[in-house]
């Protein structure tokens, strides 16, 4: 029998390690997805350029580390306002023009933006793979037969914190309520005196700030290159659909589910199967629970 499938006392370590891998990988996916679910949920815009902002975040961390010897965790504080600004600028220059256009136009626009950003990065920084090696990327914590990479643990902790902050912001602040109201009924919100353009601008900027921060946080773990965003963006869509559009906690849980499917599927069936498994899950959710596993019934058609 394949020793990998034999579960005995000696395999408890393996199960524990798979659990740890799931949680840590889920943290990375949540980081990448949380901004996407916000933009998708409130603006109903499918942002295909989301991965490219992640890539830009990774490059910001790389250059800050290489030229100024700044640790990514220091860069994080700079990158959040920086990417907030990039988000505002992108909204004003690109997204505002297509926000009321059909979904097809929005898709063409964001795919165009994605390709433009990839090639701009290629021209500016070549196709080389760039890595950041701060001290914490090589630190491994070992406990109870499991191993944790310190950079990954930090990324997970920040993912959880970011999710909770955004969740609280959406639920309990006035601005959050205004954003949800705009998502639920754009016309009624306008009639109530809400400046929806301002809401969309803020939403887009927060979403891009989140993914920019994610780029900085994953830079010690994955190489930066012009198409690095593609590695994660497809997954982020699966997560957003699983969790329900615009649902922060749903995105966190969705990330953990996708990571679990990937880790367990890779161990028992082989890593070639992982995309089969989570896209089957993706299709099943779309067919059986179109609002997502944790989403409100009917929410999927709001405002469309």
């Amino acid at each position: 029998m394949d020793p990998a499938r034999r579960l005995g006392p000696a395999q408890i370590d393996v199960v524990a390690q798979l659990g740890v891998s799931t949680v840590l990988l889920g943290g990375i996916y949540a980081l990448v997805s949380v901004g996407l679910t916000l933009i998708f949920g409130i603006m109903r815009v499918v942002n295909f350029a989301h991965g490219e902002f992640l890539m830009l975040g990774m490059y910001v961390a790389f250059w800050a580390y290489t030229l100024l010897a700044l640790d990514p965790y220091v860069v994080l504080f700079v990158s959040i306002p920086l990417f907030f600004g990039i988000g505002v600028l992108t909204y004003v220059l690109v997204m505002r023009g297509v926000i009321h256009a059909s979904h097809n136009v929005q898709i063409f626009t964001t795919v165009g933006l994605s390709t433009a950003l990839q090639n701009a990065a290629l021209v500016a920084w070549t196709g080389d793979y760039r890595t950041v090696r701060p001290w914490h990327s090589a630190v491994v914590i070992r406990a109870l037969g499991m191993a944790f990479n310190l950079s990954q643990v930090v990324a997970f902790a920040i993912a959880v914190a970011l999710t909770l902050v955004l969740f609280a912001f959406m639920k309990w602040t006035h601005t959050g309520r205004v954003m949800r109201a705009t998502a639920q009924d754009h016309d009624a919100a306008t009639l109530m005196g809400i400046d929806t353009d301002k809401v969309y601008r803020l939403t887009f900027a927060i979403g891009i700030a989140c993914v920019g921060a994610a780029g900085v946080l994953v830079s010690p773990l994955y190489a930066a290159y012009p198409t690095a965003g593609l590695q994660f963006v497809l997954l982020a869509y699966v997560v957003v659909v699983l969790g329900g559009l615009g649902d922060m906690l749903g995105a966190m849980l969705g990330s953990l589910i996708v990571a679990a499917v990937e880790v367990v599927g890779s161990y028992f069936f082989g890593v070639a199967w992982k995309e089969v498994f989570y896209f089957v899950l993706f299709i099943a959710v779309l067919v059986l629970r179109p609002a997502g596993l944790f989403g409100q019934r009917g929410a999927e058609t709001l405002g469309v």
Partner: peptide, 9 residues
């Protein structure tokens, strides 16, 4: 193009 984690392997 889509491998993010080798720990299960």
């Amino acid at each position: 193009t889509s491998i993010n984690d080798f720990t299960p392997i």
